[in-house]
Amino acid sequence: DTSLDALRQALLQALMDQDLLDEHRVQEMLAENEGKFKGSALEEMLNQLIERLIEEGYLTLREEQVRQQQQQRGNGNPEISEPLPRNVKFEVTEKGLDFLGYKTLRNLLGSLGKSSFGRHDTPQLSTGVEAAAASKAYEFGDTINLDVNTTLLSAIQREGLKMPLNLEYSDLHVHQCDYQSSCATVVMLDCSHSMILYGEDRFTPAKKVALALAHLIRTQYPGDALKLVLFHDSAEELPLAKLATTQV
């Protein structure tokens, strides 16, 4: 449900979960408005929060076209009908999606303790390890980043320590660097009926993992290609921007 009412409801729940608002205060604000939500200080507060989320670029609003059927209501009837209710929906922006991806990734990997050495950032300290790869004999086509020490040592071993030192082609050695490659990843997301079988939602957790994985790949491995595929009776490519709003 992407209606504004659903958003207000979710906001209220989030505020209460984070102890920013308690049940008592909610009742108080409603009571000030004769128990009605519409026009209450609570509605005003939630609207202000939605405005802030929009200003900061996390969400956008769009107005859906009112159904044709409703527009035709009262056709040929000169009397003025009641104004139709506005059908405003919200959408998560790319910034919002990026933020959710980051948070989901942090939650998935955030419970790391200190175990073996890896690449995940932790609050702990460790000694640095910088692997210096051995140099190799120069071959045509190699980048000429000469390892001068090994080159001279090779010449000395062959010719003995004398001046002038005669360098042969086979003496040349070059530094080796880590070779980094890019890779392509396709994430396949199952949205078949079994994902919501027996009323249990297995799709949302899977979607969160996909979102976190997408965030990890996009931020840690620039140059990688990432595509999402949604499969059910058939399969189709899913744009990353649509991931958050995809449902079974």
Partner: peptide, 20 residues
């Protein structure tokens, strides 16, 4: 006070609703 609420924390609290 609405302006004192951290939007990042709020978005995190909203994530379950926004993603489901």
């Amino acid at each position: 006070d609405v302006s004192s609420i951290n939007l990042g924390d709020l978005m995190e609290g909203l994530s379950d609703s926004l993603l489901s």
